[in-house]
């Protein structure tokens, strides 16, 4: 079967919220942040390329490997808040 490697997903900031719940981080059962849910109407939902269960490896080129949950969540939140870019680049892995 086609083992696809990590995928780069560009999420435009098309809504007021990113609209994902993330679970996981260093020193927990889920070592890398995983998408736990996607809220309707959020930027992630409107983008349509993110799926529940996908693992976020990088945000705008910054690796989340080894980061505690709160630090990883802060990186994602700040990437969405910043006015420098009107999108966020997620490097995503499909671990099932």
């Amino acid at each position: 079967s086609g083992q696809s490697g990590p995928t780069l997903v560009r999420v435009s900031k098309s809504a007021n919220t990113l609209g994902i719940a993330v679970e996981g981080g260093a020193n927990t059962r889920q070592p890398l942040p995983r998408i736990a849910s996607i809220q309707k109407g959020g930027s992630a939902h409107l983008c349509g390329q993110l799926r529940v269960g996908q693992v976020i490896l990088e945000v705008n080129g910054m690796s989340l490997k080894g980061m505690e949950h709160r630090d990883a969540a802060r990186v994602i939140a700040e990437a969405f808040k910043t006015k420098e870019k009107d999108y966020i680049d997620f490097l995503i892995a499909d671990f099932n």
Binding site: L18, I20, Q30
Partner: peptide, 15 residues
Amino acid sequence: REKRLTLPPSEITLL
């Protein structure tokens, strides 16, 4: 006896 370390579940953050 080797003590089995069980990792804690993670928090969930809404973004």
